[in-house]
């Protein structure tokens, strides 16, 4: 685990997302943020416990926090882009203050707004792990490479959080595009969370 951004490997978001999904055996919830975070979550294979954000830039972490508060026994992941986190940085203080033990934040930091054309974010000199730590998420750390990312995931799944895992990304685009049907996304997610129980066709 690294506290600085020197020597961090730039990783492929789809590969990291696939590694994450492969580790989910307990119907863990995953909230994919706006930008390409939710695209690669979709591309990694739909699960009923996935929620794909189609707007509300910056709210992946708050949505995941709400799920985590409602179901303390279920591990809940937020996959958020750096541009999106910048828009709602204050939410890290709320997470630290409430400290939901089952919340895991994964930051996909590519340094750009990839989905809108790859413009650099103003966070050029920002260290998001340092920011998370300073907000009170004291165990926040960067993943140096894929092997360490997996080790940090194992730790996050096995221990109390809130956890914050920072990942530096390469410039590759997403693998697929999420199917945009908000009402259906919400309905499937609620069934995945067990809050809607009736059987549906299809």
């Amino acid at each position: 685990m690294s506290g600085t951004t020197h020597n961090l490997k730039r990783m492929y978001r789809f590969d990291l997302t696939t590694r994450l999904v492969a580790k989910l055996k307990q119907e863990e919830a995953v909230i994919g943020g706006i930008g390409h975070s939710n695209f690669d979550l979709w591309a990694a294979g739909h699960r009923p416990q996935n929620f794909y954000m189609l707007g509300s830039m910056g709210l992946a972490i708050p949505i995941a926090m709400g799920v985590a508060l409602a179901q303390p026994a279920r591990k809940t992941f937020a996959l958020e882009g750096d541009g999106s986190l910048l828009m709602e940085l204050g939410c890290l203080t709320t997470v630290a203050a409430q400290a939901p033990k089952n919340l895991i934040i994964i930051l996909f930091d590519n340094g750009i707004y990839q989905i809108t054309g790859g413009q650099p974010t103003p966070g050029l000199h920002a260290d998001y792990v340092a920011i998370a730590r300073a907000c009170g998420l004291t165990t926040a750390a960067w993943a140096a490479d894929e092997v360490e990312f997996e080790r940090m995931l194992d730790n996050a799944l096995a221990t109390d959080g809130p956890h914050f895992i920072g990942c530096k990304l390469d410039s590759q685009g997403p693998k697929a595009q999420t199917e945009r049907d908000p009402a259906q996304i919400r309905d499937r997610f609620m069934r995945g969370m067990g809050t809607k129980k009736n059987r549906t066709l299809g």
Partner: peptide, 14 residues
């Protein structure tokens, strides 16, 4: 805004 996110997640999860 954050609260709108939190409440949305919480409601979907019961």
């Amino acid at each position: 805004e954050e609260a709108v996110g939190i409440l949305s997640g919480a409601w979907m999860a019961g």
